[in-house]
Design a protein around this nucleic acid. Sequence first.
DNA 1: CCGCTAGATGTAATCGTTTACATCGTACCA
DNA 2: TGGTACGATGTAAACGATTACATCTAGCGG
Lengths: 336, 336
Amino acid sequence: MANIKDVARLAGVSVATVSRALDGSPKVAAATRARVLEAVAACGYVTNALARNFRQRRTHTVLVLVPDIANPFFSRIILGIERVALEHGYRILLGDTQYNAERERAYAALVTQRQADGIICLGMNIPFATVSSRSRLDPDWPPFVMACEYDGEIPAPTVCIDNVRAAIEATRHLLDLGHRDIAFISGPRASPLCRDRLAGFTEAMTAAGLRVRRERVRYGDFSLAAGHQQMRALLGGARTPSAVFCANDEMAIGALRAARQAGLSLPSELSIVGFDDIAFAEFATPALTTIRQPREQIGVRSMQLMLEILRDGQQPGRRIVLAHELVVRESSVAAP
Amino acid sequence: MANIKDVARLAGVSVATVSRALDGSPKVAAATRARVLEAVAACGYVTNALARNFRQRRTHTVLVLVPDIANPFFSRIILGIERVALEHGYRILLGDTQYNAERERAYAALVTQRQADGIICLGMNIPFATVSSRSRLDPDWPPFVMACEYDGEIPAPTVCIDNVRAAIEATRHLLDLGHRDIAFISGPRASPLCRDRLAGFTEAMTAAGLRVRRERVRYGDFSLAAGHQQMRALLGGARTPSAVFCANDEMAIGALRAARQAGLSLPSELSIVGFDDIAFAEFATPALTTIRQPREQIGVRSMQLMLEILRDGQQPGRRIVLAHELVVRESSVAAP
DNA sequence: CCGCTAGATGTAATCGTTTACATCGTACCA
DNA sequence: TGGTACGATGTAAACGATTACATCTAGCGG
């Protein structure tokens, strides 16, 4: 396969000139450039990106750590990241961590090995935050941006929504419909984002003069099966809630099915509100009321933040909070 | 950041010895190796993968081209690919092509640029098959495997299921339930896989002495919205079919909703059968009858095939056909 | 005690670019 | 006309590893 020397020989110039001609340096004469391009075409030359990256010590690649690509919530975010990346000559390397810290670290190693320039993390673990370095922004960290999730202690650059407010709005929506006994199906306990949603739920309930009983708060792992399982648990009690707020749409859809299997007619006997507004939410039966996150924008802004860090060589401790929106569909109606 | 020379100096050996010690060559004395490892630990050395890949002219990276990562069908396949890749010291680079040939080519360029060793393609386009090279296996092609989709003309290594048989089984299931007026919502016309499913549908209908009328075959793009739209079109006619077979589950779920919105009660007035058995199928209302594809296995086998090609340096024109399974749930019942 | 062998290590070329620096004309100004 | 400045190009040194080949040492047989 042809290399830059072949092109140089063919065009009758030095390799330096070829290199300059190809990356559009202004210091090469038009006639020379034309000859170079002709030679390139003639021998089908393609620059060896491996050699270039090695020499430049940059890969123009950003690692995106996703807890689970099978989760449709993340895919739109990825699309946004990818679009901005491509527009700026970057590509993304997708790492599915399966909510697994070890896999996360394995992927993060790519950065120390110089296979990626930075990391955008959609999950909640910061793969290189050792105990010693928590609670401050370590200058040794590679360029790093969190999207969706965040960490209370570490002031890493972050793009997210205001989960407390969003949860308050969702809960208030149910309260406004006359519901009093409302349950919350949360994601993992360790997730700061879920804690915020729980905090918002609790705050809205308290503001309405209601107490959140312990057994009305349940924890799942964001999957359809978890929603199903936790809903069954809720239905197993002596009294059943008249409404359920779920920390994501997949669990809400799982809950929907569990309720229907238990013989409840929806939405009249049980209102359900989800979170995220994934594509399936609109097509559920009944169509799901949910909080819409600006998923593509989350991706766009985090990649922009990453480019900024890569350009300036420093991490701004910035946090970008985007707007969410309550989307009311069929699954939430007045309390019986 | 420390490089191999620093380690060599620290351990009092040459860089060659360090290199050998690190990749476990048997020609280095135990004592020396210990000293090297100690030095590595002392200065926190990590191999610069960029330099190594450059020198070895291998990236240990396989490009996976996915038409749409947001489609949950693909995510499990990717998981299978990734698992095998990691087990063999490879990683995968995920390219979302958005069913767009240009993006596909942009990603495929990574291989000519030496950023990836091979391509696994989940979509239907072969990104470097020019008109001139169609219908034969070009030895200039990079290591290349197709998964799910295939190309009638080009004998590329492929992992798939028998789509004709699967469609026959699905259709026969509906016929056995007494349905006579059955519609088919296909994916893109250009997709060989969809043509096969249509062929299977037609064959089963014909075998039952039924003629497939033109307006009972509709084309979508595999999305929820497409299923919805095509179902509405089917319901707009003078007579409505008593059953619909969809080329994937997402369209089936879209169709489900359109039927319900039109006031049909499901499944009694309309049976629906999907394809793929994505996670949401089981949680639809009614739960979707569908053809299960061994998604993870498809991923596993295609990566294994890729490793084989990478190892032997030649493309076997092999085609691996895996078993599918009809999963009967609630959405298909006896004809009214 | 010599020569041979084999195992351990060192030397240096190599991969294909980019890029700092040197060089060479040529045009312009005094 | 000589000097200067600048634009275009060439030369060669990096980048950080791997690896073919050379060298060295010790052990062993004759």
